[in-house]
């Protein structure tokens, strides 16, 4: 992928996705019940509004796709094609840890240990991936452990005692 046509490629993929989303929404809207047996006004059928929204998305998606095929568009704001190795590593680490904590561990295990472990792992992993790291490894581990414990206990205290929010575990 060359730097020049990368924005158009991104727009093409996005446009095709929006077309599929619009079509799927339209089909699902048409499949929704119209409650004719109940003698209900067809204008109030549940599929009316999502059908119109999906149709609009379909038109916009087609426009974006056609524009990308023609090589049009400004490409402004598209940064997905300009990633270096460091950015890929940091993003992959962040998203992996976030998914592990947010989707799997939070709620399944007691709050304080799992949160402390997440914050500790996050700090250590992202700092080790950072070429400009100033701290030695022992100092990093000690600092990350202190932050992890303080944050986990602090968040539990603030949420449960001050704001009366029950946390899992």
């Amino acid at each position: 992928m060359t730097a020049r046509n990368a924005p158009a490629r991104v727009d093409l993929i996005a446009g095709v996705f929006v077309v599929i989303l619009g079509m799927a929404g339209l089909v699902e809207s048409l499949r929704m019940p119209r409650f004719e047996a109940r003698g209900i006004d067809p204008n109030t059928a549940p599929g009316v509004t999502p059908g119109l929204i999906s149709a609009a998305l379909l038109i916009f998606g087609l426009t974006l796709t056609l524009r990308a095929i023609r090589g049009g568009g400004t490409g402004s704001g598209i940064t997905i094609h300009a990633w270096d190795r460091g950015a890929v590593l940091r993003t992959a680490l962040t998203i992996s840890l976030a998914l592990l904590y947010g989707m799997l561990l939070f709620g399944s295990l007691p709050f304080v240990p799992v949160t402390a472990a997440f914050i500790f792992a996050f700090v250590v992993a992202t700092e080790l991936a950072n070429p400009d790291r100033a701290l030695s490894v022992p100092a990093l581990l000690a600092g990350a452990a202190a932050l992890a414990l303080a944050a986990a206990f602090g968040i539990q205290l603030i949420f449960e005692e001050i704001f009366l929010v029950r946390l899992p575990g």
Partner: peptide, 13 residues
Amino acid sequence: EWLLGVIFTLCVV
């Protein structure tokens, strides 16, 4: 690196 893990935790909580 020291801040955003805590911020994500706050988002989850």
